[in-house]
């Protein structure tokens, strides 16, 4: 324990109180955990994916096909916000920025999110197709990241994988239900999968950053076989075929985004930027 850590950084109505809201280092690791520049960049990758996806899912609340789905998608978004907070907090330790600084005060080129999470919600089938792809990917990613040599990333992954397992199940059930439902729902599921599939390849593309983080980051390309193996039986049962067609250019990891991200960020950041420093 760190009883001797400075504990009087803030003085407020509670007296001398320090709230270290997100000390994410594993319990047995001594000392503050500060990310290196490369690890911070990697944490930003993963954190931005979760943040952008959570923002998208939040838009479904009060608009989903049924009340239970408002709640389900809201809960999935909440988990993702939690992952984003942990990851962005950790990324911020490298440059002394808070998770909120990173979420609200970066502009589009500084975001590192994948194109698939930026794709619009579309109809419900599009959102489910996006969830199906991303949550299966995240499950494989966090399963492997639990063994990271970086204790903080490993701790975040161990926490996140249990929640993403539920997300994976949720989207799987909906893929089956829509694909095996009415002609209309099946048609929409097929269209949605076909619209989202071009963005799958970027998820598994390696980058030179990964070469520098051997044993710490998970090599994206190494996750592809597990991802394919996990979704294949679901698609088979749903009688859906893997779409063929063009592959989107990608570029999210280097700050080249689709046209959708700027609108999403504008909405997400408007309040903070209109009232800098406000709290409630």
């Amino acid at each position: 324990m760190k009883a001797d850590a400075p504990a009087n950084d803030h003085e407020d109505a509670h007296g001398h109180v320090a709230v270290d809201v997100s000390t994410l280092d594993a319990e047995l690791i001594e000392g503050p955990s500060q990310a290196t520049a490369d690890i911070a960049e990697y944490a930003l990758w993963l954190g931005d994916d979760s943040l952008v996806l959570a923002q998208q899912l939040g838009a479904w609340i009060s608009r989903a096909p049924e009340l239970e789905e408002d709640v389900a998608l809201g809960n999935v978004a909440l988990d993702l916000i939690g992952h984003a907070r942990s990851l962005l907090h950790y990324a911020g330790t490298a440059t002394d920025r808070s998770e909120d600084d990173l979420a609200y005060w970066r502009t589009e080129p500084d975001f590192r999110s994948l194109h698939i999470v930026e794709q619009p919600n579309g109809d419900f089938a599009h959102t489910i197709a996006r969830q199906f792809i991303v949550s299966h990917y995240l499950f494989e990613l966090y399963s492997r990241l639990r063994a990271s040599a970086d204790a903080t990333l490993a701790a975040i992954a161990a926490k996140a994988v249990k929640e993403v397992d539920y997300h994976r199940d949720h989207s799987t059930q909906w893929v089956l239900r829509l694909a095996q439902g009415t002609d209309e729902s099946r048609h929409r599921m097929i269209t949605a999968l076909s619209d989202l599939w071009p963005y799958v390849e970027e998820i598994f593309r390696d980058d030179t950053l990964i070469d520098r983080l051997e044993g710490i980051a998970v090599r994206p390309s190494s996750l592809r076989p597990a991802f394919d193996a996990a979704i294949a039986p679901v698609l088979a049962e749903a009688e859906l075929e893997i779409p063929r067609g063009f592959v989107a250019s990608g570029g999210g990891r280097t700050g080249n985004h689709s046209e959708h991200l700027a609108f999403l960020l504008a909405e997400m950041q408007v309040l903070t930027r209109a009232h800098p420093g406000a709290s409630w």
Binding site: A18, T23, L24
Partner: peptide
């Protein structure tokens, strides 16, 4: 006095 609360994930 000097109460601190840490959230630990692991």
């Amino acid at each position: 006095q000097n109460v601190s609360v840490r959230l630990v994930l692991s």
